[in-house]
């Protein structure tokens, strides 16, 4: 059905159907369940044994160019993780809650590309967050590749960008790329 565009890359009708998602919102915008706060920072620095004093020592942090306590920058995404519905989470493949919003992940799952492998993460921090910042996110589909053949079988690279704002100010963004693949095509000749 698909013609070879170039080695290992094909164009096909599934990809054509996915075109409507490119440049569109991937999910409804969301407000973080909690503002940036010291207890969650403490949980994080204990879990990762990160003893940078600017995260916990108020007097020391004030003496640095941070000018006061700041949150670990890599916590950016942690603040906006949705509240999980634990019951049934394994059956949902780990999704914190039912995904109701029409997006390319669901479209690819339905087309048989149920495998997901994260390949890239790029976090950018325009400034450090402080206790009290309350993050809001919007997420946009940046690109969807043509179908590619890899050692995991055939699939599509899907890239999205999440923008983080506090009181309307952009404070950071994350580019995330996954390979959505059809596990039944692993090792397939073509």
């Amino acid at each position: 059905m698909a013609e070879m565009a170039k080695a290992g890359e094909e164009t096909d009708e599934v990809r054509e159907r996915l075109e409507v998602y490119v440049g569109k919102q991937m999910s409804p915008g969301a407000l973080a369940p909690d503002p940036v706060n010291r207890p969650m920072i403490r949980h994080w620095v204990d879990a990762l044994d990160d003893r940078n004093p600017v995260y916990e020592d108020e007097a020391f942090a004030a003496s640095t160019r941070h000018g006061g306590l700041v949150a670990p920058p890599a916590m950016l995404q942690a603040w906006t993780m949705p509240r999980p519905k634990i019951e049934g989470i394994a059956e949902r493949g780990g999704a914190p809650d039912e995904m109701a919003y029409d997006n390319p992940i669901i479209a690819l799952d339905e087309a048989g590309y149920v495998g997901t492998l994260a390949t890239n993460s790029e976090l950018e921090f325009d400034r450090y967050l402080r206790p009290g910042d309350h993050l809001e996110i919007t997420t946009e589909v940046e690109s969807i590749s043509n179908r590619k053949k890899t050692s995991l079988g055939k699939g599509y690279f899907l890239t999205w960008i999440t923008t983080y704002r506090s009181a309307g100010e952009v404070v950071g963004r994350q580019l995330f790329r996954v390979f959505k693949f059809d596990p039944s095509t692993i090792g397939a000749a073509s």
């Binding site: 990762l48 940078n52 004093p53 942090a61 920058p73 890599a74 790029e122 950018e124």
Partner: peptide, 19 residues
């Protein structure tokens, strides 16, 4: 982030982590 700031110290400001 910890690996880099353990080396650079608390005045470091991480701007980007691309992996």
């Amino acid at each position: 982030s910890r690996f880099v700031t353990d080396w650079a110290g608390p005045e470091a400001m991480v701007r980007k982590i691309a992996i």
